[in-house]
C-alpha cells in the first residue's frame, strides 16, 4: 500500500512542495508589506548554491552542518533581497523591472552559476543531506507513515513556519502594522509606523525564506548542485501567493498540490501508459496558468484582493 501511486505522490508531493512553500511564505511576507519581488527564482538559486557550498565546507557533525547551511542559504537569499529592497524602497525603482533584474543577476545565467562553477560545486554529491527523521517502523505505518513520518526536518520546520507566519499576521501587533503598511502606507505612516523599515524587514525576511527554499533543493530534493536546479519553482511560488489569496495556510495547500504535479512525471515513468516525460513535466506550469485564470475571475478578486499598495512606492513628501 505504501508503494501505491497515490501514497507515493502525496508523500513526494509534500517533499517537492516544500521549497515552493518556503519561497511562497517569503514572497507573501514581502507582498504583504507592499513590495512585489519577482526575483524569487534568483534568490532561491543563490540560496541553493550557497547552502550547498556551506554543507561541503563545514566540517562538523551532520545536523550542525545542515543547520549552518540553511543559515547561510537564508543569509544569501536575504542579501539578494536587499538589492531589490534598496532599489525599490529607497531609490523607488519600478518593482517589476527590478525584480526581473534580480532574477537575471542572480539566476541561472548569473551569480548562482558563477558561484557554483567558480567554487567547483558541480558533479559532487552533498556531504550531508536532510533525511527522514522518524524511525523506520513509523514510516512503515500504512499510508500515514510515508506521508507524515517519512519527511525530512525541513518539511516539519516548514509547518512550524506556516503556523508562525499565520499567527504573526493575524494575532500580533507587528503583523497588524505590517498589513496596514501593505494596504495603506499613508494611514500607517500617519500613525507613526515606519513604512520603509517594515518594507525593508519583510523583503529581507522574504529573501531569507526564498534562500531556504532554494537550499531545500540542493540539500534535500536533488541533493546536489546543478545550474538552474529550481526549474522555475520561484515563479510558481509567486503565482502560488496569488492563488493562495495572500494567506499562509492556503500557500501550504497550493504548494503540495504543485509539488505533487512536479513529482507525478517521475512516479509515472514505470507505467507503460505514461505520457512522454516532457509533457508530464509541463503539468505544473500549465496548472499554474490554469489556476491563475481561475482566481483572476472578478468575484474572486473582489472578495480577497491583493494588498492595495502592492507594487507602489510610498513617498511622503511629494505634492
Amino acid at each position: 500500500m505504501n508503494n501505491s501511486l497515490l501514497v507515493v505522490v502525496i508523500a513526494q508531493g509534500i517533499a517537492y512542495g516544500t521549497p515552493l512553500l518556503y519561497a511562497a511564505l517569503g514572497e507573501l511576507l514581502a507582498e504583504r508589506s507592499g513590495v512585489l519581488n519577482l526575483g524569487v527564482e534568483g534568490m532561491m538559486l543563490v540560496g541553493a548554491v550557497m547552502g550547498f557550498w556551506a554543507v561541503q565546507r563545514f566540517h562538523v557533525t551532520s545536523p550542525l552542518a545542515l543547520v549552518g547551511a540553511i543559515a547561510v542559504a537564508a543569509l544569501a537569499g536575504a542579501a539578494m533581497a536587499a538589492i531589490h529592497a534598496f532599489l525599490v524602497i529607497t531609490l523607488r525603482a519600478n518593482q517589476i523591472v527590478s525584480g526581473l533584474a534580480l532574477t537575471i543577476f542572480a539566476g541561472v545565467a548569473g551569480l548562482s552559476s558563477y558561484l557554483g562553477n567558480d567554487l567547483n560545486l558541480a558533479r559532487s554529491p552533498a556531504r550531508h543531506q536532510f533525511q527522514a527523521i522518524f524511525p523506520k517502523s513509523w514510516q512503515d505505518i500504512n499510508a500515514v507513515g510515508p506521508i507524515l513520518f517519512g519527511q525530512s526536518a525541513l518539511v516539519y520546520a516548514s509547518w512550524v513556519c506556516v503556523v508562525l507566519v499565520a499567527l504573526y499576521l493575524t494575532r500580533t501587533r507587528v503583523g497588524l502594522n505590517l498589513r496596514a503598511v501593505g494596504e495603506s502606507p499613508a494611514a500607517a505612516d500617519a500613525m507613526g509606523i515606519d513604512v520603509a523599515g517594515y518594507r525593508y524587514a519583510h523583503t529581507l525576511v522574504g529573501g531569507a525564506f526564498a534562500g531556504i527554499g532554494g537550499a531545500t533543493f540542493s540539500l534535500s530534493i536533488t541533493p546536489q548542485w546543478l545550474a538552474g536546479l529550481t526549474q522555475g519553482a520561484g515563479w510558481i511560488a509567486i503565482a502560488l501567493v496569488i492563488f493562495a489569496f495572500w494567506r499562509p495556510t492556503l500557500c501550504l495547500v497550493g504548494a503540495y498540490f504543485f509539488g505533487a504535479f512536479t513529482y507525478l512525471p517521475f512516479a509515472l515513468q514505470k507505467y507503460s501508459w505514461a505520457p512522454p516525460p516532457e509533457l508530464a513535466q509541463s503539468l505544473p506550469y500549465v496548472m499554474t496558468v490554469l489556476a491563475l485564470v481561475l482566481v483572476s475571475s472578478r468575484a474572486a478578486r473582489l472578495r480577497f484582493g491583493a494588498p492595495s499598495a502592492l507594487g507602489q512606492p510610498y513617498v511622503r513628501e511629494e505634492r
Partner: peptide
C-alpha cells in the same frame, strides 16, 4: 488615513506602542 479592510478597533490601535500597545 484609514485601512479600509481593517476593523474600527484595528485602525484605532494601529501603531500604538505605549503600555498595552507594547505587548506583542
Amino acid at each position: 488615513r484609514l485601512v479600509s479592510p481593517f476593523t474600527v478597533a484595528e485602525n484605532i490601535v494601529l501603531g500604538d506602542h505605549r503600555d498595552v500597545g507594547r505587548s506583542f
